[in-house]
């Protein structure tokens, strides 16, 4: 356990005594809901199992700060087998933030040798080394907000990005959500794959789901019965976040000229190589691709007929 500098409640999790406080108070800490420029953390969980951001660091004065932790078994307790990690790091300084998790194992479903979430001058991304989900390879550099459908019971989102009002950006590396939208169709019959996932689901939440579970409603009712609480199907029962980095915008909006916007197109601004940051936003309309044909979705939106 090698902690250089840690801030926030997650730091309190390093001793048994304070870990209790951290876990019990975890829900009161707002995370990633508001812009917090130049900050990062490696792991958090909300819902039935709460883990405050671990290795949370924040640079309030632009100076470099970092935190590092080798394993979090003492925080997870009986859930050690559900969430496995190696070394967790987080660092931040003016305009940039980065966090990494090695040897990740979420619920035996998602594994990766390295998950690196980064943000730099209002741009960011995710790198996954040797990542798999249910045995399928994960992309090494997922596009923003890439959702992977495991089942309606489990949802994984990679590289979710949110721009804040002040131009800062939050990149969430991996987010695993349990029962993300069960309330949308409670009577839907579970697929065989979903049934296979039920033991992990119950194991994570500490509930032995009874036999004969057939529909989404059965899962919700079973969890409610097992846990002794009324599970609200309109909200995720559990969310686990691996990697979050927030950075302030560079010189983007203020006086503009940082990355060659200036006077319109003339693409490869100024000196050729430049930064690759605004590849998607190049104003040279001659190079713009044709818009794709629409994909017909299944949806329910009553229109005016």
């Amino acid at each position: 356990m090698n902690t250089k500098k840690l801030a926030g409640a997650g730091a309190a999790a390093f001793s048994a005594a304070t870990a209790v406080t951290a876990l019990l108070l975890g829900s009161s800490v707002a995370v990633a809901q508001e812009a917090a420029p130049d900050s990062a953390y490696a792991l958090s969980a909300s819902g039935l199992l709460k883990i405050d951001p671990v290795t949370y660091v924040e640079s309030t004065d632009g100076n470099h700060v970092e935190g590092q932790l080798a394993g979090i078994g003492d925080v997870l307790g009986e859930h050690q087998s559900d969430i496995g990690v190696g070394v967790l790091t987080a660092e931040a300084q003016g305009g940039s933030a980065e966090t990494s998790v090695t040897k990740l194992n979420l619920l035996q479903l998602l594994r990766a040798d390295l998950v690196r979430t980064y943000c730099n001058d209002g741009d960011g991304g995710l790198q996954i080394i040797r990542g798999t989900i249910l045995g399928r390879d994960l992309p090494e550099t997922p596009v923003p907000s890439q959702a992977i459908d495991i089942s309606p019971l489990l949802k994984v989102t990679l590289n979710d990005q949110v721009r804040h009002e002040d131009g800062s950006l939050t990149v969430t590396g991996i987010e695993l959500t349990v029962l993300p939208g069960a309330g949308e169709d409670l009577d839907r019959v579970l697929t065989s794959d979903e049934r296979k996932a039920l033991p992990e689901l119950g194991g994570l939440l500490g509930a032995d789901l009874p036999g004969g579970v057939n529909t989404v409603r059965d899962v919700v009712d079973g969890l409610s019965s097992e846990l002794g609480v009324q599970v609200d199907p309109s909200k995720p029962v559990q969310t686990i976040t691996v990697g979050s980095a927030t950075c302030s915008a560079g010189d983007g909006d203020g006086n503009g000229d940082g990355n060659g916007d200036g006077n319109g197109n003339g693409n490869g601004d100024d000196n050729g190589n430049g930064d690759d940051d605004n590849a998607a936003a190049d104003t040279d309309t001659a190079a713009v691709a044709t818009a794709p044909k629409p994909e017909v979705m299944d949806a329910s939106l009553p229109v005016t007929g």
């Binding site: 019990l24 199992l49 307790g77």
Partner: peptide, 13 residues
């Protein structure tokens, strides 16, 4: 620490 996690889960409920 198992107790800690259990407590956390209980409070979470």
């Amino acid at each position: 620490m198992g107790v800690v996690a259990v407590l956390a889960v209980v409070i979470g409920f």
